[in-house]
């Protein structure tokens, strides 16, 4: 990877990596630290990285750093500013979004990462498996379980949509 390819990777993928980490950690400062660290590692290892695969490398490094960050016991503080309110034009959509965010926070870090990698980045089961160190079948099973859990939270008695 050349310096130019590295800088292009920053422009194209810094936001998506940050968004993915932020949704998992729910702390903007921690998310920035993880993203900066991931890019720094990629810069150090740029000689061994193909420019076309910088995104998967970046997400892999960021994911593992995020997991390490969580397992070190650092508190996940739900900050209001960590989740920006999208401009919604009806109350129902705003309500649904809020419930989903709560449901996502109830997942474990692996399930949450799988859901976000799948929904935010559109990775295949195999690609997600490479990033997280799981097999494709494991990714499929864990992801399906996560969606069922999210669905059940949506239809729980306290969250019945009007």
């Amino acid at each position: 990877m050349t310096e130019k390819e590295y800088n292009n990777c920053v422009k194209e993928h810094a936001d998506s990596v940050y968004r993915f980490i932020l949704k998992n950690l729910r702390n903007s400062e921690d998310a920035r630290d993880v993203v900066q660290s991931a890019f720094e590692k990629m810069w150090v290892s740029r000689a061994a990285i193909d420019g076309a695969r910088c995104k998967s490398f970046l997400f892999t490094v960021a994911y593992h750093q995020m997991i390490d960050h969580i397992r070190k016991g650092k508190a996940l503080i739900l900050k209001e500013d960590a989740v920006k309110e999208m401009p919604v034009y009806n109350r129902q959509q705003q309500q649904t979004r809020k419930i989903l965010e709560e449901a996502l926070s109830r997942l474990n870090e692996t399930q949450r990462s799988l859901v976000l990698l799948k929904d935010y980045e559109g990775y295949s089961y195999e690609e997600i498996g490479e990033i997280t160190g799981l097999s494709a079948s494991q990714v499929k099973v864990y992801l399906h379980r996560a969606r069922i859990q999210l669905k059940n939270y949506l239809v729980s008695p306290e969250n019945i949509l009007e």
Binding site: N7, V10, K11, A14, D15, R19, V35, V115, D119
Partner: peptide
């Protein structure tokens, strides 16, 4: 419909500010 509700959509307003901190210049 419920299963499709569990699919998250990326929030385009969330960006990494001050990207120039990440750029490298040998």
């Amino acid at each position: 419909s419920l299963i499709q509700e569990t699919v998250f959509k990326p929030d385009g307003s969330i960006i990494f500010e001050n990207k120039e901190l990440l750029f490298k210049d040998s």
